[in-house]
Structures are given as C-alpha cells and as structure tokens.
Amino acid sequence: MKIARFRVADGPVRLGRVDGDTVTDLSDVPGVGSSLRAILPELDSLRATIETASGAVHPLSDVVLEAPVDDPQKYLGIGMNYAAHAEEARQAGVPVPENQMWFNKQVSCIVGPYADVERPAVSEQLDYEVELAVVIGRRCRHVSRDDAAGVVGGYLVANDVSVRDWLAKRSPTFTLGKSFDTHGPLGPWLTTADEVPDPHDLELSLTVNGEERQRARTDDLIYDIYDQIEYLTTVMTLMPGDILATGTPAGIGAPTGSWLKPGDVVRASVEGLGSLENTVVEAR
C-alpha cells in the first residue's frame, strides 16, 4: 500500500492511496484524517478500509505531493554506512568510524518530493545524498535485531542534502550542515513495509541534470536497517513517524568538488519506492 499527502491546487493537504498514476482521496474514511504520522500505529486495522476506499480520484499529474511525513519527532541519519562510500571517504582522508555514526537533521528541513532545494547564501558546497529512509510505525525501545522489522511502518526515498563546509568546519556535530531549510526532500509517498519484501536488496540511484552520479544496492550497507534500529533503541525511544536515513552510497559531489548550483535538477530514486526530483535555487 502506498499512501501520499497531497493537495489539489491551493486546497488543504489530504491523505490519499496511490494506485499507479492516480491518487484516491481518503478524506471520507473514518479515522484517517490528514496526518500520516497520526495513523501509523493504526495502519493494520485501517488497511482493509483504506485499500477499498472509493473517494475522489485524481491523476498524480494534477496534484501537488507533499512530504509523506512532515512532522516527525526525530529525523536521524547515519554517516558512512555503505562500504564503497566509506572507502571513498577513507581515500579522501576522512577517518571511517568504528561504530554507527548518527546525526540529527532538524525536522524543519523537510520538504516535498518535488519542492525546490535552496543553495544557501553562506556556502557554495551544496551536495546530494540519495538514501533509503525508514519510517518507524510504532513506539519502541530496546528492540532486538530479530524484532526490528516489526517496528517499521514503511519506506521513503530521501535526499540527505548537505552543506559540506558547514559539516567539516562550522558545525563538527553535523547538525547545522545537515539542517538548512529545504535540505530534507522526502517522498514521493510512504510504501508500507509489507510491500518491500527485502529492504536490503534495493537499487538506489541519483542523477544531476540527467547525468548519473550515484548507483548502488542496499546490500552494500555496513550496518543494515535492523542493526540500526537495535542500536538506536538502546539509547532512545523511537516514535511513530520518526525517520531514519540509512546512509548514502559512493558518488557524492565532495571528493571531486562537483557542487550543486542553481538550475540543477536532482533526481533521487529507490527501486520500487519512486523518485524525488528537486530543482536547486538560490536561497530566498
């Protein structure tokens, strides 16, 4: 099942079921409302109703897709978690961490799958990172690796947009360099976990103006999704709607100085989950 947040023209944001190239409005389904985060813990009980709902149907080309979850309590990302990317970093003189290395992206960075991404006035070192993102489906703490699949609500495509000089020099905790406004495109919809038989066997890719920059499979993850959930829930309670960006593969712009510039169109895709397409603009 694929669930989107969308609006028609300047109308209110609604939830909808995505089927092929259409979205069915779920506004009249009791208990659904307009917040995906709010219904995540109830998706199992709502599934039959959502799957058979017959609200207004809109072509996807006629609606504006919003970030499927725009109000998570936490948006966490893991660094250097693909083997090829870690080697890329090592060759550039960046030490490879011995354990999972997590950072915060402030939730105010989140934008929709086709929203503009701003190049900030304070830096030209704007970089891209295609990632598979996990959306937590229920409140959980101290989750074992064996039980971790059961707390996943679904999956999204993420572009972990990064301002490299702010990561390396201005904010050594990563938080600021990862959290500029508009630097968290997510979407295009939530694909529920039951539709992703093996999240560790998916292809990711990213192009800039049609030129391929990244391509890899999630079997190159150093710490897989279930390792990540076990590690994080040792420390904190994860809540419905929390987003985990699981790492980016090799091919980022930093090693060659291939920074994004205004006018660039960045397309990030994950097999079976869809694509984001964001245009870079000067900060307003």
Score class of each variant (00 low, 15 high):
residue 235 V to T: 14
residue 237 T to F: 00
residue 173 T to L: 12
residue 83 A to C: 10
residue 61 S to D: 11
residue 206 L to W: 09
residue 271 E to G: 01
residue 221 L to E: 06
residue 8 V to A: 11
residue 275 S to K: 06
residue 95 P to N: 07
residue 179 S to H: 07
residue 65 L to D: 08
residue 231 Y to C: 14
residue 62 D to G: 07
residue 267 R to W: 07
residue 278 N to W: 03
residue 98 E to S: 14
residue 55 G to R: 00
residue 71 D to M: 03
residue 243 I to M: 08
residue 18 V to A: 09
residue 74 K to Q: 12
residue 3 I to Q: 00
residue 215 R to I: 03
residue 4 A to S: 02
residue 154 G to M: 09
residue 108 S to W: 12
residue 14 R to F: 04
residue 17 R to D: 11
residue 167 L to F: 08
residue 139 R to F: 07
residue 224 D to C: 08
residue 211 E to P: 06
residue 158 A to F: 11
residue 260 L to C: 00
residue 170 R to D: 09
residue 42 E to K: 14
residue 198 D to A: 03
residue 181 D to P: 14
residue 203 E to W: 13
residue 136 I to C: 01
residue 45 S to F: 07
residue 261 K to S: 06
residue 199 P to A: 04
residue 48 A to Y: 07
residue 128 Y to C: 06
residue 270 V to N: 03
residue 278 N to P: 05
residue 114 Y to M: 11
residue 156 L to D: 02
residue 40 L to E: 05
residue 272 G to Y: 10
residue 77 G to F: 04
residue 2 K to V: 07
residue 233 T to L: 00
residue 119 R to G: 07
residue 30 P to G: 05
residue 27 S to Q: 05
residue 19 D to Y: 08
residue 192 T to R: 10
residue 9 A to H: 15
residue 2 K to N: 13
residue 120 P to R: 06
residue 171 S to G: 12
residue 28 D to T: 10
residue 32 V to E: 07
residue 243 I to R: 11
residue 247 G to S: 06
residue 275 S to T: 10
residue 144 S to E: 10
residue 117 V to P: 03
residue 247 G to W: 05
residue 139 R to T: 14
residue 228 Q to A: 11
residue 191 T to L: 04
residue 51 E to Q: 14
residue 1 M to Q: 12
residue 28 D to W: 08
residue 237 T to Y: 01
residue 41 P to Q: 10
residue 22 T to V: 15
residue 170 R to G: 14
residue 13 V to Y: 08
residue 257 G to C: 05
residue 31 G to D: 04
residue 125 Q to T: 15
residue 3 I to V: 02
residue 98 E to L: 12
residue 34 S to M: 03
residue 61 S to M: 06
residue 195 E to N: 11
residue 259 W to R: 08
residue 249 P to L: 03
residue 277 E to Y: 04
residue 72 P to S: 15
residue 64 V to C: 03
residue 71 D to A: 02
residue 242 D to Q: 08
residue 163 V to P: 04
residue 32 V to M: 09
residue 150 G to V: 11
residue 244 L to I: 15
residue 248 T to V: 10
residue 226 Y to H: 15
residue 272 G to N: 08
residue 223 Y to N: 12
residue 8 V to T: 13
residue 86 A to I: 04
residue 82 Y to N: 02
residue 79 G to T: 11
residue 111 V to R: 09
residue 14 R to N: 04
residue 51 E to V: 13
residue 163 V to E: 06
residue 32 V to R: 08
residue 244 L to F: 13
residue 226 Y to A: 13
residue 78 I to K: 10
residue 256 T to A: 15
residue 116 D to S: 13
residue 249 P to I: 03
residue 173 T to H: 13
residue 167 L to C: 10
residue 132 L to F: 02
residue 10 D to P: 01
residue 74 K to V: 05
residue 53 A to W: 05
residue 181 D to I: 14
residue 249 P to C: 05
residue 3 I to W: 02
residue 255 P to Q: 04
residue 192 T to W: 07
residue 87 E to S: 14
residue 229 I to D: 00
residue 59 P to D: 00
residue 44 D to L: 10
residue 39 I to F: 03
residue 157 V to C: 02
residue 125 Q to R: 14
residue 196 V to I: 06
residue 195 E to R: 14
residue 254 A to C: 07
residue 189 W to C: 14
residue 284 R to Q: 12
residue 50 I to V: 15
residue 240 P to E: 01
residue 40 L to P: 10
residue 256 T to S: 15
residue 63 V to F: 04
